[in-house]
Design a protein around this nucleic acid. Structure first.
Lengths: 153, 153
DNA sequence: ATGGATGCAAACCATTTGCAGTGTA
DNA sequence: TACACTGCAAATGGTTTGCATCCAT
């Protein structure tokens, strides 16, 4: 249930490589923050990462954790779950459906697709729990943002 | 790009039915809050719903909107986008993958599936924007929560 | 009439930011 | 040495809560 030593090492090497290339300094706290995320299969919140890192560096501050997670995300070294952080969004369409989410502006649009509704979960998921609903999220640029990006280029 | 009159009416009827059955009062603000969500294809945030409702009921308060959206969600009359609202979660696994999310405790687990990676977006999505990534989110009860639920029953 | 619902204000929690001091390259 | 990075503290933004009043049933 945890990431193999070799994989963690590989991720750390990649991390150092990308940071150096981007001109980012390899500070103690930055390395430990990345290590914690790299060696777990969970998806820890910033708060959890903070608590884990604090075991090794008692003086770290929560905002350093936030700053680094955000930076690591920008560098593509880690990703976040769910739509880009924003406020909760509601939907009166309770029938099974899926979403197209714009990674730029965050707008979401529904679409229906029988095939997506009936996706068969792979067997390995059985060891995680029982699946009740299936939800496909397609991410990309909406027409408006694509147009805007083209205009600015 | 908006919900048909008949569908809105159908949703409102259902809303009244469910509320009454659940012993909830059909207040003016509650009805208008539901109507706003029911008649749009967008996925408005609580703030947006607040602004829309305020046009008709200038004295509504934001917390009434929050309370009602949460209640409507509990009654299954509306749903929220993405994983149950909580703090952002990070992931050092940057390779394309999918998630199993427990609706009870919120824990998320990765899994890989070539078939899911290669899902073809339906044609109608082309009118929304260009798809860059595909992400399947399976929701259900994780083993631990299922065990706990059984024990409590 | 009466218990649930509302409005107000204050509390809360996750996340962000300004600033002065610190450590890496 | 210089500039990015850190810790601290205070600010912000979304959401929740306590309480007195109000209104749908």
């Amino acid at each position: 249930m945890s990431v193999s030593q070799e994989e963690v090492q590989r991720r750390l090497d990649h991390f150092r490589d990308v940071c150096t290339r981007a001109g980012m300094k390899l500070t103690h706290q930055r390395t430990e923050i990345f290590r914690e995320v790299a060696q777990t299969v969970d998806h820890p919140s910033a708060q959890i990462v903070f608590e884990l890192v604090r075991k090794r560096i008692p003086a770290v501050s929560l905002d350093t954790v936030y700053r680094n997670l955000s930076l690591l995300n920008d560098l593509g070294l880690i990703t976040t779950l769910g739509p880009p952080r924003e406020s909760a969004r509601f939907d009166a369409n309770v029938i099974s459906h899926h979403h197209f989410v714009c990674t730029q502006c965050g707008t979401a649009r529904d679409f229906h697709n029988r095939g997506f509704d009936e996706l068969r979960p792979p067997i390995e998921v059985e060891s995680m729990g029982s699946v009740e609903t299936t939800h496909v999220e397609l991410r990309g640029l909406c027409l408006r943002c694509k147009k805007k990006a083209k205009k600015e280029a």
